[in-house]
């Protein structure tokens, strides 16, 4: 009896030790940004209430939040999985775009196939194209030792050209005013879970992926090798892990995850490829990954929190005319304070 009491007690303490710095960081960032909002002459409590509770007041707000959560979480994982092996994937948006292109291409070319065949193909194409886009920098790293930060960033710019070509030349939708492709076949669309307000089944995919990533990194021998490589590549090599292969693999997995987020945007939300679908998911993904300190199992929770802030921010802009950029300040401050709490704990 007492034994279990002690262990649950110490477990609770351990969890508190992890969560408490986060709560303090969030509190501190709200206080700091509250000062800005007050200086700008807005109603601070009302602004914060809008930011925090928009997601939970109406079903629509909650579903909007979930829809935002899907790409944010996948983008964050696309960053943190390679990070676990010690590699930096800053090419998430390029991989998202190319994944979206792949999904769209399959969805348009095989538009007549029935859903049970076409949908898996569309999703798979997104993963494979995204993985391929990351495989190029990964191979350059493996073969020539070229720094992956540089190459993954530069591949983003290549993807901008590519999507422009696809959306204005190959499958251009002449009716649209913005570079957009024609829609994919109906069989390539993710089925709706709720029709009004609309929630597509991509959320299930995203949750499965998050659980899968957790199992891979924390429960498998292969994931162990990934973590070990990130912790100390030299020691991992001495103890028989092919670290260069792990670098390669981790970046390709990251690309696949980002590509999946592109495919879900296409198959679930837009049903076509629209230039600009990458939004600012890359930067938010990096912030989420960093706030989670690279911990894959923390990413979904942080991603949900950031999605809440994002939805709250656009509501705040609509109803109170406070610039949406305000929420970037909050997000940046949370990151800053979380990192700061680490420094303080080390002292």
């Amino acid at each position: 009896m007492t034994d279990t009491n002690i262990s649950t007690n110490s477990k609770a303490k351990a969890i508190a030790a992890i969560v408490l710095p986060y709560l303090l960081a969030i509190l501190a960032s709200f206080v700091a940004s509250g000062i800005f909002i007050a200086i700008m002459g807005f109603n601070v409590p009302k602004a914060f209430a809008t930011i925090l509770f928009t997601s939970f007041r109406t079903p629509n707000g909650f579903i909007q939040t979930l829809l935002k959560f899907i790409p944010l979480m996948l983008q964050a994982l696309a960053f943190t999985v390679p990070l676990a092996a010690g590699k930096f994937n800053i090419g998430g948006e390029g991989q998202l775009i190319v994944g979206g292109i792949g999904a769209t291409a399959v969805g348009i070319i095989f538009a007549d196939l029935p859903l049970p065949i076409l949908l898996p193909l569309v999703i798979l194409a997104g993963v494979i194209f995204g993985g391929f886009w990351a495989a190029i920098p990964a191979w350059l790293l493996y073969r020539f030792g070229i720094n992956e930060i540089l190459t993954t960033v530069m591949m983003n710019f290549v993807s901008f050209g590519l999507i422009d070509y696809v959306a204005t030349q190959i499958w251009r939708d002449p009716a649209a005013g913005h570079p957009t492709t024609i829609p994919i076949g109906a069989g390539g669309e993710l089925p709706m879970l709720i029709s009004s307000p609309p929630l597509h089944s991509g959320i299930i995919l995203a949750i499965i992926v998050a659980v899968g990533v957790y199992i891979y990194t924390n429960r498998t021998s292969a994931g162990y090798e990934l973590i070990a490589t990130g912790a100390n590549p030299r020691a991992s090599k001495v103890y028989g892990i092919n670290t260069r292969k792990m670098f390669l693999l981790s970046l390709i997995i990251g690309g696949g995850l980002a590509g999946l987020s592109g495919a879900i945007e296409v198959a679930g939300y837009q049903h076509r490829l629209i230039e600009g679908l990458q939004s600012n998911f890359l930067l938010l993904g990096l912030i989420i990954g960093l706030i989670a300190k690279g911990d894959n199992s923390a990413v979904p929770f942080v991603a949900f929190f950031i999605a809440v802030l994002e939805i709250g921010a656009s509501a705040m802009q609509r109803t109170m005319m406070i610039p949406v950029e305000m929420v970037f300040i909050v997000e940046a401050l949370v990151l800053l304070f979380v990192l700061l709490s680490d420094v303080i704990r080390r002292r």
Partner: peptide, 12 residues
């Protein structure tokens, strides 16, 4: 340098 994973657990 050659045998230690500082950021992983003792069990790791």
């Amino acid at each position: 340098l050659d045998g230690f994973l500082p950021t992983a657990s003792v069990a790791h």
